[in-house]
């Protein structure tokens, strides 16, 4: 098991390193950054000055190593637009996105797991079918449109919730629904299929045969086993949510990491963009690593192979 953990960790680390190169190259190769920063009206001399000032005249490999060395202790340089360090900006905006992601994941699990259990128990029944229809329908709705529709219904017409911002907990309700929406089908399907497998197993039949009550069997024996892979999936889904929160934050004007990325992209503030890409990718890699460990702990065949 230890060998397996070490090997997976090595892979995760090298993937993270490759991602950092990709993130760096992507922004440096897709155009002349000095020209982009200086603006269209700048004279060639001004562009040259910007190039030297931001260190863009150095060889690409040197620029990358400088950046990586800084990134390792959370020094991502200074933002071009905001008069702050990138690290300070990120630290300031991070809690909003993390809170949003956590609430969204919580809501998604709260809906998806019970729905998956009920669907599995009533396999082929109307609840099962309705849940499947809901999955297919739900996935077709664009996030930003769902967000706008929620605003129209719950903020404008019913006046239950604030339209936008991130001042109070009430501000997080609609964005969390919009963000968590897409995790529901995947989690529900996995719960349903896991429950179907477990319910068909011998030990459940034994538990029922010795006269245990159905709820006890369902929750203590079946769900406990079916839910472990769901935890692994939830970890990965959380990573997706952090990446996808850019759209939701834009719709609800929440000043989180996604909104910061959007602003930074619009202003060609590439130290900020690079830092956020690296950060989100690292979190995702960390979460998949965690998911791998959960799955390996669950299924010894994985860790031996």
């Amino acid at each position: 098991m230890l060998l397996y953990i070490l090997r997976r960790f090595g892979v995760a680390l090298s993937v993270a390193l490759t991602v950092s190169i990709v993130a760096f190259l992507l922004l440096h190769l897709s155009g002349d950054l000095a020209l982009a920063i200086a603006g269209p009206e700048a004279s060639p001399a001004q562009v040259e000055q910007v190039r030297i000032q931001y260190g863009l005249d150095k060889p690409l490999a040197v620029q990358y190593l400088d950046w990586l060395a800084g990134a390792l202790h959370f020094d991502f340089g200074r933002s071009f637009y905001f008069r702050e360090t990138v690290a300070a900006l990120v630290a300031e905006r991070m809690p909003v996105t993390m809170t949003l992601g956590a609430i969204a994941l919580g809501l998604a699990l709260l809906v998806a797991i019970p729905l998956g259990v009920v669907a599995a128990v009533n396999r082929g029944g109307w609840i099962d079918r309705a849940a499947l229809v809901f999955c297919v329908l739900g996935q077709a709705i664009p996030t930003f449109w769902l967000g706008l529709t929620l605003i129209l219904v719950f903020a404008v017409n019913l006046r239950w919730l604030p339209v936008s911002g991130n001042a109070t907990w009430a501000h997080f309700v609609m964005p969390a629904i919009a963000l968590g929406w897409y995790a529901v089908p995947a989690v529900m399907r996995l719960t349903r299929n896991g429950m179907l497998d477990v319910l068909a197993s011998d030990y459940i039949r034994t538990a029922r045969a010795k006269g245990l009550r159905w709820p006890t069997v369902l929750f203590k024996h079946a769900l406990r086993n079916a839910v472990v892979p769901v935890v692994a999936l939830a970890a990965v889904q959380f990573g997706f949510m952090l990446g996808g929160s850019i759209v939701v934050e834009a719709v609800f004007s929440m000043h989180g990491l996604g909104h910061l990325a959007w602003e930074a992209i619009g202003r060609k503030d590439f130290p900020v963009v690079q830092a956020i890409v690296l950060l989100l990718a690292s979190i995702y890699i960390g979460l998949t690593f965690l998911a791998d460990l959960i799955n390996a702990w669950l299924d010894p065949r994985i860790r031996v192979a």
Partner: peptide, 23 residues
């Protein structure tokens, strides 16, 4: 498999937005 892992780690919306803004 390694290349696929790297691709999966990249946040799609963010990368697409950044690339579109620069190109």
């Amino acid at each position: 498999g390694y290349v696929v892992n790297v691709r999966l780690a990249l946040p799609v919306v963010l990368i697409a937005l950044a690339a579109a803004a620069l190109v």
